[in-house]
Design a protein around this nucleic acid. Structure first.
Lengths: 192, 192
DNA sequence: TGCAGAATGTGATGTACATCACCTAAGCCC
DNA sequence: GGGCTTAGGTGATGTACATCACATTCTGCA
């Protein structure tokens, strides 16, 4: 399945577009490929695109005082990512995005998204629902943070995304969970 | 300013509606008043409305194992609240909402929101942007959780909502910060 | 107005985690 | 394939917080 089909299947789950509408929408996306380790958005960048992952795995992260990294999101195929704060408010990036593995993405500019939303009814509908899912996921993660200890959050993460265990290094999983790599290491070595 | 004017001013900040469109939209809202301590949504309820706060202060919270309460949101005037997970997925409430003070709200049903969104272009636009703001706020709070200690989060909260200091009891602020009331008490008594 | 329950303060103690220090093992690159 | 970088494991120690226990103050209301 090529990029276009993947995006189409993804959007048609929540919106009803004619083929012509989808083709028009798709014409605003640009395909890009990145190598493992490459940066897509770096802190301080001007941000004007969001990214739809076709293959590979990205991470969206924040670095505190140039010391600690916190991972906001592992972006897997059919996920969207960007520094949405910077994108919507036209400010410089505080959140960075780079590639955990080689990756293929579709890029959509903020201007084009707004243009499409104003031209195609169902596109606006789609983006409303997409943001909504993001909001719910974020709220769920916040609750999990307050309510569960590290071990429970680790198991929750692996239950939801079993692929992560082999795909991403453990210190990145620790950065997602918000604990030190040492603590994570001790956790799953102790529980045998 | 009455409820209608407050909602109108709120919506017109991000969407362009004609007076007739707004009147039609407004006709789907119901006014309700609640007393301090009254529940609006209780765990296990069927959820089919969301709420726009006109006056007073609500809290949206989650209770773990019937023991600990975590506050997801203090809802102040012009804020929206509900158990959005239950509302969108048609499941029973896991998040409850009640009144910290006497409150007046406008209620909108999930069905009516979707109906309005499909009928009025700019209404869908408004709700897309509203959800987006919620998503960004939630992500910001998640980052603050991972990155800052309790004292920093406490100061951040009071800097953003100074009214809270006098309006809500300290143990609720602790429940928002995700710490015990004892820890919060020691925190601001130590820093004198 | 006096009393019950709620809100708040504070000490003692336990624990989950961070941090630092150091070690081993596994890529990866000229 | 030897050396360098990155990932990962593990001990010792410190610290921020939870928890329990109890004292104190506030507040609503009969």
């Amino acid at each position: 399945m090529d990029s276009k089909e993947i995006l189409k299947a993804h959007i048609l789950k929540t919106a009803t577009l004619t083929d012509q509408e989808f083709d028009y929408l798709f014409s605003h996306f640009k395909s890009k490929s990145f190598k493992k380790g490459q940066a897509i958005i770096s802190e301080g960048d001007k941000v004007d695109h969001e990214y739809f992952v076709i293959s590979g795995c990205l991470k969206a992260f924040f670095i505190n005082d140039e010391i600690k990294m916190y991972i906001l999101q592992f972006a897997m195929p059919t996920w969207w990512t960007s520094d949405y704060g910077a994108l919507y408010n036209h400010t410089r990036a505080t959140i960075s995005v780079d590639c955990i593995s080689d990756a293929a993405v579709l890029c959509l500019s903020n201007d084009d998204r707004e243009k499409i939303c104003s031209e195609i009814r169902q596109a606006e509908h789609f983006f409303r629902w997409r943001t909504n899912r993001g909001y719910l996921a974020s709220q769920k993660r916040l609750l999990s943070f307050m309510n569960n200890d590290t071990k429970a959050r680790y198991e929750e993460l692996l239950a939801m995304y079993p692929q992560l265990y082999n795909l991403v290094p453990k210190h990145l999983i620790a950065a997602y969970l918000g604990v030190s790599r040492e603590t994570l290491s001790r956790l799953y070595n102790a529980q045998k």
